[in-house]
Lab assay of single mutants.
Amino acid sequence: SFNTVDEWLEAIKMGQYKESFANAGFTSFDVVSQMMMEDILRVGVTLAGHQKKILNSIQVMRAQMN
């Protein structure tokens, strides 16, 4: 498990989005775990492969939080 959203993004090789997530207010796992595709688009993730990777990881995160 990760301590910060930045660490999580690095771990899934999506570190290039750290600033975008932070600027959009997605700075805690409570918020990130609620993200939908529209949120991912809003933070500027436009590549389908990256969207899928982030969404898949969020689903895993949700499962671990319950």
Rank of each mutant, 00 (worst) to 15 (best):
M37I: 11
I54G: 00
H50F: 03
Q64Y: 06
E19R: 10
K52C: 13
K13C: 14
M14D: 00
N66C: 12
I12R: 02
E10W: 05
N66S: 11
S28L: 04
N23A: 13
Q34D: 07
T4Y: 06
G15R: 05
N23E: 11
M37Y: 12
Q34G: 10
F2Q: 06
N3H: 10
V60R: 11
A11D: 12
Q16E: 11
V31D: 09
N66H: 12
S1P: 15
K13V: 07
G49M: 12
Q51Y: 05
A63E: 15
I58L: 09
N66W: 02
K52N: 13
M65C: 08
F26V: 09
M14I: 03
Q16D: 07
G15F: 05
F26W: 08
S33K: 10
M37E: 10
Q51L: 10
H50I: 03
L55H: 06
K53A: 15
M36T: 15
A24K: 08
V45W: 01
D30C: 13
Q59F: 10
D39R: 01
F29G: 02
R42Q: 09
R42T: 08
F26Y: 15
A48D: 13
A63P: 07
S20Q: 15
H50V: 03
M14S: 02
G15S: 12
A63K: 13
L9W: 03
D6I: 05
I12E: 04
G15P: 11
N66K: 12
F26G: 03
D6H: 07
E10N: 08
G44L: 02
E38Q: 09
V32N: 00
H50G: 02
N3C: 11
R62N: 14
S28M: 05
V43Y: 02
D39M: 03
K18L: 05
Q16S: 06
I54C: 02
S20K: 13
K52T: 12
A11I: 07
I54W: 00
Q34C: 09
A22S: 11
N66V: 13
M14N: 01
I40E: 00
N66E: 15
L9N: 00
K13S: 15
L41I: 15
S20M: 14
Y17V: 02
Q59D: 14
T27D: 10
F21Y: 02
S57Q: 09
A24T: 05
V5A: 02
V45A: 03
A24F: 11
E19K: 12
L55E: 04
D39T: 04
T46S: 11
I40V: 09
M37T: 07
E38W: 06
I12P: 01
L9S: 01
N56Y: 12
K18Q: 06
I12S: 03
I54Y: 00
Q59H: 10
R42S: 10
I54R: 00
S28N: 13
G44Y: 01
M14K: 01
Y17S: 01
T4H: 06
K13W: 10
M14W: 01
V45Q: 00
Y17A: 01
F21Q: 00
K18T: 07
E38S: 12
K13R: 11
R42Y: 09
R62S: 08
S33V: 15
M37H: 10
M14L: 10
A11F: 13
A63L: 11
S20P: 08
M65V: 07
A63T: 13
K13F: 13
Q59M: 15
F21K: 00
A22L: 10
Q59G: 10
K18G: 05
T27P: 02
L41F: 08
M37D: 06
I12L: 13
M36P: 03
F29C: 05
G44M: 02
G25E: 04
G49Y: 11
V45T: 02
D30G: 10
A11G: 13
I54Q: 00
M35V: 03
E19Q: 13
M61F: 05
E7F: 05
L55N: 04
K52V: 13
N56A: 14
G44E: 03
S20A: 15
V31R: 15
R62W: 06
M35G: 01
Y17I: 01
G49I: 12
N3E: 14
S28C: 07
S20I: 08
K52E: 13
Q51N: 04
S20E: 08
A11S: 15
I58C: 04
I54P: 00
D6R: 05
N56Q: 14
R62L: 14
D39H: 05
Q16R: 11
M14T: 01
Y17D: 01
E10F: 06
M36L: 13
H50Y: 03
H50M: 04
I12H: 04
L55A: 05
I40F: 06
N23C: 07
M36C: 12
R62T: 08
M14H: 02
V31K: 15
V60C: 14
